[in-house]
Structures are given as structure tokens and as C-alpha cells.
Write a protein that binds this DNA or RNA. Structure first.
Lengths: 245, 245
DNA sequence: CCCTCCATCTTAACAGTGCTCAGATTGGTG
DNA sequence: CACCAATCTGAGCACTGTTAAGATGGAGGG
């Protein structure tokens, strides 16, 4: 779905051997994303990404001021894609019920974390790195579709819709976005970090639905008893701190 | 509260110059934790931690099979401390109301993330690293109080109590721990990753209370309209992907 | 057409990293 | 006291992020 189409202009094919790559910045982002997916958030190096693109290590520094900047840019791109995905999920004509729309948004959010845990982890965590903020020179945020909405904004719009349609009391609207975001994000983070395991995307969807609905109507007001539940990857049981020789 | 008391047995003082350190493993964990606090999850090196303890870099490898193993052990220790903290918060005689107990547990969880974002991030994220699982030799999980309960277990017990006291329908009990954990964890993760900002611990406490209560009674059934809300550190606005020279 | 400009990329190098291995140093045990 | 096994040291390897100085070649003006 990506990784092909390395140069959009000019002839030739892979860009290997070409001195001027065409879109090195994008290619580096692609390579980094693939590496993150393959080997985890930190299981790769700038040099490796450069080599994969067919370029010397220092070439990357003409597009990103540091490795952290690369990660930050990738984070932005992934967050944008996530926002788009959420928006698309909400606009599916399947069911126009505002509750269902919100559930769909949450499911898109959580599924992304389930399908691509490492990339999602990177996307969420890039802001906390020490050099994350002020390492750059110029803010020109190229490479990212500036129209791509942040996940939080998509959620916010959805809640407005919920109020307008009379499904949420205006008094409860203030800050409700954070409550719902928190719920979605918690599930996504627990899955991405491997602290919880579910078997299959459908199970994740059910869990997401219950979580989102609970924040709206409350666990107290549940009708249907429910099905198989996540299993905790209990760190105390599973993970071990080892001592060698 | 920690970092002092380097050698519990034998005389001398700092352990510097002593060939046998006494408790190098613990000292390394302390140093690593301090470094994480000071410079972020990845802003430190094994060598640096070793140097801070006054020991050669390779000494660490007699206690941890790799750097990742150190991080994993630290994660376990921090999670244990978090569990204890949650348990303590629940047992405060302040208010015995089961709802309030659950809120207190959540507040302990979230406050930890707020006070020590980097360490908390490490604690949660250590399991997802590629070498996290099978890198070790022997599972002897020394150094960690084996009685320290995992946060999830504390939460679970609290929900049982909620059912026993008639505040939660048994039908809704199954999987409710995951729903509540998800909510707490989402807030903690968003705060630790800097995707949300609140001003002061009290604001965080209020947000936590609302979040936990929402998962129980639902946003729909809220009575009191509420106060200042978190501000999104909107990544699209704040963070920038930079391009040099 | 050529020629200059300058963004783009390269080669070379530096300090610092995780990790290994052969050997020095010890506290405890026979 | 002598030994042993645990503990720590020192040197060294392959690799990392990052920087500096020089090569390359596409774009635009003459």
C-alpha cells in the first residue's frame, strides 16, 4: 500500500544511483516507518533508513535536523493518517446513529493501535522525547497534509454532533471530549504496549464499543452481559528480570 | 526518598573504591531511574548509569543480560511501586465509600504519571520492546518485592468490592476491570506523553474523578457541570517537523 | 548552447554506544 | 590458610548520531 512510487517525477525507477533523489524526505519517512513496523520503535537507525533508501547517512541531515526530528515528522504523518481514518470511519453510511458514529471512531482509533502497535507507539510517544520540541530551525511543516485533522479534533466534532442530535446533554459536553479520548486512548495504549491482549480485531471492536458506550451511559446501565474478555499480559507473571551467568 | 542508603551491609560509605559493591543491582536500578527522570526514557546510557554508581560499564552485565533487561527490571519495580501506591490510596480511612475508593485508586495511578512522566512511560512501554521477552537466561526475578501487586490486580480487587457492596451489578462485572483500567490508563498515558496538559495535580484529580465516574454512571447521568478542562497540546499546532539549512 | 549557482548528496572522521572476553580482585567456605 | 566462585576491570569490536568539507548535477540566465 506504500513503499512503492518512490519518485513521482522524472524517469528512472528506484532512485538508486540517482544523485538527486526527487523526494528523499518522503522516502526516508517511508523507510523509517517500515523499519519501525519491522523492528520496533527503537530497533532501527538513521543509517539503516538511509541505506535502505540508497543514500548516504548524512544525506538525511539535509531534510531533518536530527534523528529525533525524523521521528517527530513521522509521528505527525501517522497522527494525520489516523485522524483521516477516524473521519472516514465516522462517515460510513452504514449507520447514521450518532452513538454508532462515535463507536466507529473509537474502533478506528483502537484498530490502528492493534494493527500497527509499534508505529502507533511512536506516533503517540514522539512528543515526550527531550529534543522533541525546540530542536528545529524552521517550522515549515512540509511533507504532511496540512488538512489532515488531529484525532482529537475528529472526536471533538463527533461529540458536537452528539449534542446537536440531542444524544448528549449540553451540560455534560464541556470536557467530554477528553473523557472519551481518554477511554479510547487507554485501550489503544494498553494494546499497543502489549499490556492487554485480545484475540482478533472483532474482539477489539467489541471491547472498544463497550468502553465507549460505558463512558456515555455508564457501566451501571448496561443491559447485555458480555463475551470473552481481554487477557492481561500480566507483567508480573510474564515478564522477567534476568540475571546472567 | 530514595537514592540514599547505597549499601545496607558492611561499613564504608559510598561504595566507591570498593571492589565488591554490595548491592550493585539495586544501585544500577536507582541510577537508571534517576537518569530516566532527569533526561527522559532514552536520554541515558548503560555506561552513564555504571559511571554514576562508580563502576565499570561491563560490571552491569553481571546483573543484567542487556540494557533492555535493566529497563525491564526497572519497569517491574516501578509497576510494583505503583500497585502499592494504589493499594495505599484505596485503604485511606478518609472515605470508605466504594466509589470513592475506586476514584482514589485512579487518582493514584494518574498522579504517578503526572509526577513522573518519563519513569511511568518507561514502566508501561518496556514490555513492547523487541528484546523485552526472551532475552534473558534465568527468570529469577530478584530485586523486586514479589508481594507487590500489579496495578491491574489492585483495580480488580476494588471492583470486586464494588460488587459485594451492591454498587455494581454482577452482570456488569465481567470485563469491567478492563473498562476502568482503560479509562485510568488513557488519562495517565495522555498526560505522561504530553498530549494533554492540566495545571496542577488537583486538576488532574478532578479529571480522573470525572473519568472514573463516567465509566460507572455515564456521561449522560452527570449532575454537576464542571470546571476548567485540560488543554490539548495539539501536536499539529505545537510540534513541528523541521528541515535544516 | 554553455556556464554559473546552489540545493543536494558523498566521503571521512569524531565521540560515544551496547556488548564481549580474557584477566585481576576479592569475600566467604572448606 | 588456601582455594573457589562471584564480582569487577580493561581493552576492544561493530555500530551509532552528528559534523565538516568537498563532489555532483539540475535549473535558469546569458
Amino acid at each position: 500500500m506504500e513503499g512503492m512510487g518512490e519518485d513521482t517525477m522524472k524517469g528512472k525507477s528506484t532512485g538508486r544511483g540517482r544523485y538527486h533523489h526527487g523526494d528523499l524526505r518522503g522516502a526516508l519517512l517511508d523507510a523509517a516507518e517500515a523499519l519501525v513496523r519491522e523492528r520496533g520503535v527503537d530497533g532501527w537507525s538513521l543509517r539503516e533508513a538511509s541505506a535502505r533508501v540508497g543514500v548516504s547517512p548524512s544525506a538525511a541531515y539535509h531534510h531533518f535536523s536530527s534523528r529525533d526530528a525524523l521521528v517527530g515528522a513521522l509521528s505527525l504523518r501517522v497522527l494525520g493518517q489516523l485522524g483521516e481514518r477516524m473521519g472516514r470511519a465516522a462517515d460510513l453510511p452504514a449507520e447514521a446513529d450518532p452513538h454508532r458514529r462515535l463507536v466507529a471512531v473509537g474502533q478506528a482509533y483502537v484498530r490502528a493501535a492493534l494493527e500497527d502497535p509499534a508505529v502507533t507507539r511512536l506516533a503517540f510517544g514522539a512528543g515526550a522525547s527531550p529534543a522533541g520540541r525546540g530542536s528545529g530551525v524552521e517550522p515549515r511543516e512540509s511533507g504532511v497534509d496540512p488538512l489532515a485533522p488531529h484525532p482529537h479534533r475528529v472526536l471533538d466534532a463527533e461529540l458536537d454532533l452528539l449534542v446537536k442530535s440531542g444524544h448528549l446533554a449540553p451540560a455534560a459536553r464541556t470536557g467530554a471530549d477528553f473523557v472519551v479520548w481518554t477511554a479510547m486512548h487507554g485501550l489503544a495504549a494498553l494494546l499497543a504496549d502489549g499490556l492487554i491482549a485480545v484475540d482478533g480485531p472483532e474482539a477489539a471492536d467489541r471491547q472498544t464499543e463497550r468502553t465507549v458506550r460505558a463512558t456515555l451511559t455508564g457501566l451501571h446501565h448496561e443491559a447485555t452481559p458480555s463475551e470473552p474478555w481481554p487477557t492481561p499480559h500480566s507483567a508480573h507473571t510474564t515478564r522477567t528480570a534476568d540475571a546472567p551467568s
